[in-house]
Amino acid sequence: MKELIRLQQKIAPGLIKVVERRYNILRTIFYSQPIGRRRLAEKIGVSERKVRNDLDFLKERYLVNSTSAGTKITETGKELFYQLDNYIRVLRGLDNLESKLKHELGLKEVYIVPGSEDEAKAQQELGRRAARLLKEKLENNDVLAVNGGTTLAAVADFMLANNGATDITVVPARGGLGEEVEIQANTIAAQIANKLGGRYRLLHLPDNLDQTVVNTLIQKPQIKEVLNLAKEADILIHGIGTAEVMARRRQVDSLELEKILEAGAVGEAFGYYFNQTGEIVYSTTSLGVQLEDLKKKVGKTIAVAGGKKKAGAIISVVSDEYQDMLITDREAAEEILDLLRG
């Protein structure tokens, strides 16, 4: 792929620009459809005339179609959009960035998406890449454990219908946080299982219970069974939060929040708060998978997080001790490397 791109850059640099522009058009339509031509031109930063010409080209090949509401991508267009991912990845040097980040963090695999200034679109990019990775990694009879949160909700949204592994069981890795039902682990587990044609088990309990209550509940047969499935999952996928945001989501009181921040907490995962050097400086009572389970029981652990503002949190949480793979975006990756190199 790299050699092909080098040859194209030498003999037909204009062709590469056209491919990249049309990829951006397909990408923007994919995430924003239906979208009008003028809005599309604004989003990708090119003239409306160029967009009109490119749309005519894409329509002739049945990659997009237009309605009174705006332009939409066709199934054929989606297929091409996915096929172009690796070409664009190499063209933009994301493969080199992946290698550098993998080395710095000591992980087995790192995947970087182009990212976007639009936070919603950036999250969708992460969700789409994570969904594709899960499809590649899941095998027959696997158990998949998932956390809650907006990024994992995006993974569920972009999960494709199963055409490979069979008999997949999906379980929540944590209890709920009293947040919107759409981003709770139970909801995400059910959505992913349905798309994979698999089964799901639910955990109808809040995450931030008193330790005495937790100790009692985890002995209940139904709860114990789901927790054991999660703690010994073949694959576990989770997001990463910044310390203050996650403390507020967990409804930590103001005195405890102050204590967490004074301890130097930067990132959070599984109820554990980490400082910039990766030390656990605070933890909350929680119902679900613990960090020790990631080290000893879970097969593969995938972390998903992006955005420049989450770079410090990613550094604090992710290590070869707990995770095997990281999916992030270009903005976060470049900031992580800058921070790690001082």
Rank of each mutant, 00 (worst) to 15 (best):
S66K: 15
A153M: 08
G288Q: 12
L15G: 04
E256M: 10
Q124R: 04
V170P: 03
A161Y: 02
T76Q: 14
R89T: 00
L227Y: 08
L217Q: 05
V281A: 05
A12V: 00
D338T: 12
Q276K: 13
R129M: 07
L152P: 03
N65M: 14
L94E: 09
S68K: 15
P34M: 07
Q276M: 14
E244V: 07
K259L: 12
G176P: 00
E60D: 12
N275R: 03
L138T: 05
L257D: 13
T150P: 10
F270Y: 14
Q9A: 10
D118I: 04
V304E: 08
Q9P: 04
V266I: 15
V113N: 06
L326R: 05
G93A: 01
N24M: 06
N86Y: 11
T216R: 11
T328H: 04
R201E: 14
L97I: 10
Q191M: 07
L217M: 12
E117T: 03
R6Q: 09
G115A: 14
A265P: 11
N215Q: 14
M159D: 04
G197D: 13
V245N: 10
A263N: 13
I73C: 06
R27C: 02
N228D: 13
E334W: 00
R199K: 15
L257V: 11
L63I: 14
Y31L: 10
G45M: 08
D234Y: 01
Y87C: 05
V110N: 03
I11F: 04
P221A: 07
E60R: 15
G14W: 00
E335D: 12
K2P: 09
A154F: 08
D95P: 11
I223V: 14
K224P: 01
V110H: 04
I235L: 14
Y111M: 12
A130L: 06
V19K: 01
R250N: 10
K121F: 02
F158C: 13
R52N: 14
A122I: 01
G278T: 06
T166C: 05
E3C: 01
L15R: 10
D157N: 11
T284K: 14
F57L: 14
T328Q: 03
H103C: 02
K78C: 13
N194K: 13
N163F: 03
V170W: 01
V110F: 00
T285I: 05
E119S: 10
N86G: 00
L105K: 04
S283C: 05
R330W: 01
S283G: 03
V143M: 05
M159A: 07
E182I: 00
G312C: 00
M325T: 15
F30H: 09
L133N: 09
V113L: 09
E20F: 01
S47L: 11
A156G: 09
T301K: 05
A173G: 13
P114R: 06
N140R: 07
Y282H: 11
N147W: 01
I223Y: 12
